[in-house]
Simulated assay, not measured.
Amino acid sequence: MRQKIDEAAAVIRQRLGFDPEVAIVLGSGLGGLADRIEQPVYLPYGEIPGFKASTAPGHAGRFVAGMLAGKRVICMQGRLHFYEGHTMQEIAFPVRVLKALGVRALVLTNAAGGVNLDFSVGDLMLIEDHINFMGANPLTGPNDESVGPRFCDMSTAYDPALRALLAQVAAEQGVTLRTGVYLGYMGPSYETPAEIRAFRTLGVDAVGMSTVPEAIAAAHCGLPTVAMSLITNMAAGVENKKLDGDEVIETANRRAKVLESLVTGFVARV
């Protein structure tokens, strides 16, 4: 595993010409933040050894790196999902490569369904914890001790200091930032109303089809992580209408500027 990680990191480092400080994973419809990057360098995943191509709607499937808010950043403009047929290990691989590049903070964003009945479409939620309901874990199989421990502690998978900083930046910008528990669901079908009622009983506030594998991989390799959900729709059964992927992208596009400003302000301070 270590050899493959180092090979991919070497290719990226050669193409970039610098070591990034902060990494940002941009979820469905949220790829516009990459347009704020100065002196951008574009690197499609398909040109990196060990990387798989992203096929999800709203995901460009490439790295965009450069300067943002005075920091050297690298953005994943699109991520890999379990429902696309990628293995958990393939989903975790980019996170491990980012760690090898010397990144010292990882920002995960996603589009999610609102489970908490007090939430509204367009809300931003700071993830304080997660429930893995995907039926798989990226750490299964042989473990490479040079990457991380066999048994990985998840108590602070979402770094308390980074969460506090993001909340502070949101308050300074006048952005309402909710906090809650995110449940990772395999997909690609949306959840049933019965499942959403069950998730609410478990204390879930938002549900989506990403983020959890990346957060686990980051905790495993010791990469401090903060994560945020944009509530792009209310989950099944909350409103009397069918769920639609176009609504997710539409809401993400409408609220993207708020999220972009928040992440930019956070990067400036991290």
Rank of each mutant, 00 (worst) to 15 (best):
T264I: 09
I249W: 04
L165K: 14
G222T: 07
K242R: 04
A111E: 12
T225H: 00
P49C: 15
L162E: 02
V103H: 15
V258Q: 14
T232Y: 09
M67R: 10
E260P: 03
R96Y: 06
P138A: 14
I216P: 06
N137Q: 07
A167S: 15
Y190I: 01
A105Y: 07
R104I: 13
R36N: 13
D123C: 05
F63L: 08
A206V: 02
P149N: 09
L101N: 11
P142V: 08
M154K: 03
G61T: 01
G66Q: 10
A167Q: 09
E145P: 14
E145T: 10
G222V: 07
L26D: 07
I12E: 15
R254W: 01
F51G: 06
A219L: 01
P213V: 03
G70S: 14
G46C: 04
D244P: 09
I5W: 08
A198N: 11
A218H: 05
R2P: 00
G102E: 14
L117G: 11
F63M: 06
I216E: 15
I231R: 01
P193W: 01
M154E: 03
A56C: 04
P193V: 04
N233Q: 13
M76D: 14
K257M: 10
G114P: 10
G141L: 12
E250I: 00
V204D: 03
G66F: 02
G58V: 12
A215S: 03
I127L: 08
G17M: 03
Q173F: 06
H59R: 06
F151I: 05
E84S: 15
A105I: 06
D153G: 09
C152W: 13
F18R: 12
A215C: 00
D159M: 05
G85M: 10
G222P: 00
T192N: 05
I127R: 09
E250H: 12
E145M: 15
L68K: 01
A268C: 02
D129Y: 03
E195S: 01
D19C: 15
S155N: 00
L80M: 11
V22S: 04
A92S: 08
G46N: 02
S28D: 07
A23D: 00
S261R: 04
A10L: 12
Q39T: 10
T264E: 15
L223N: 00
R255N: 09
G46H: 07
L106Q: 02
P213H: 06
M67E: 05
S155P: 00
A136I: 10
T87C: 02
R197N: 01
V121S: 07
I249V: 01
V175E: 03
E7N: 15
L202F: 15
R163E: 09
E7V: 14
I231N: 04
S54P: 04
H59L: 08
R150G: 12
L80N: 01
Y158I: 10
T201G: 14
E191N: 05
M67F: 10
F133R: 08
T87D: 00
G184A: 08
K4V: 11
Y190P: 01
G141H: 14
I37H: 05
A215R: 03
V238G: 00
K4S: 15
P40R: 13
R269D: 07
A235V: 09
R72F: 05
V270T: 13
M88E: 15
L162P: 10
A10I: 09
P94I: 07
H220N: 07
L68W: 02
N110G: 15
